[in-house]
Simulated scan of single mutants.
Amino acid sequence: MRRKAPAKPLRVCVLSSHPLVLDEFSRLLAAARIHARAQRLDSAPPAKRPQPAAPRAQVYVLDAHAPQPVSEARLQDLRAARPRARVVVLADKFSEPAVFAFLRLGARGLLTYSDARRQLPAALRAIAAGGLWVPRAWLSRFVERICGARDAVRAAPLARTSRREQQVLDALLENLANKEIASRLNISERTVKFHVSNLLAKYGLRRRADLILQSFQMRSSG
């Protein structure tokens, strides 16, 4: 019987100009058996002093304690250097404009420092698996903003989905990873992937993040 190859460890890079943030969250991830590399950012705005290239990682944790324009520029530069980068943004708190800006720039997760102390390992695993980690209320308002006022949103035609596909879609909207969905529905991860692929095909989409956003769009217009 062939043994399964051990899963590769999740590779994470923590980016911050604050040494205490780097130390705290590097320790937290190490305790969760997540390989994290810390990189200190220069406190100067990126336009004035270019940052060194971030090391390759599956997910990046970007500290946004700097002024909002600086944090946005850092995220934009990171995404330009690493187009496939999956980024979680940390901050003391998020204003609605900041939420919209970070999501528009491609952030896959948003966590306050207090939430990150409890949720960061789970968030990183979910995002590495292709999910999002954004409060549903924020994501819903973001979609409404993209589409204009709620009354102006046109409902996309509802794809005909099976009961099981709808259960998988509901779980995706809760930011659950494939393994968690499989456990909840008592099915295999392979079956979860099959249903996600079917949903993407029915909605004419390529990424599960787009599927989540479009689902919020249709629900907000209903």
Rank of each mutant, 00 (worst) to 15 (best):
V14C: 13
S17M: 02
H18F: 00
L28A: 13
L29R: 07
L29M: 04
A30Y: 00
A31D: 07
A31T: 02
R37A: 06
S43P: 00
P45T: 02
P45N: 07
P46Y: 05
P46C: 10
P46F: 13
A47N: 03
R49A: 07
R49I: 04
P52W: 04
A53M: 11
A54V: 11
Q58I: 07
V59H: 09
V59K: 10
L62V: 00
D63T: 12
A64T: 06
A64L: 08
H65C: 05
H65T: 01
A66T: 00
A66D: 13
A66L: 03
Q68Y: 07
V70F: 11
S71R: 02
E72R: 02
L75Q: 10
D77V: 13
D77G: 13
L78E: 05
A80G: 09
R82H: 15
R84V: 08
A85W: 12
R86D: 11
V87H: 10
V87Q: 06
V88H: 10
V88L: 10
V89H: 01
L90E: 07
L90W: 04
A91K: 04
D92G: 03
F94G: 11
F94T: 06
S95R: 00
P97L: 04
V99Y: 01
A107Q: 08
Y113V: 01
Y113W: 06
S114I: 06
Q119F: 14
L120R: 14
L120A: 14
P121V: 10
R125P: 12
A126D: 09
A128Y: 05
A129D: 14
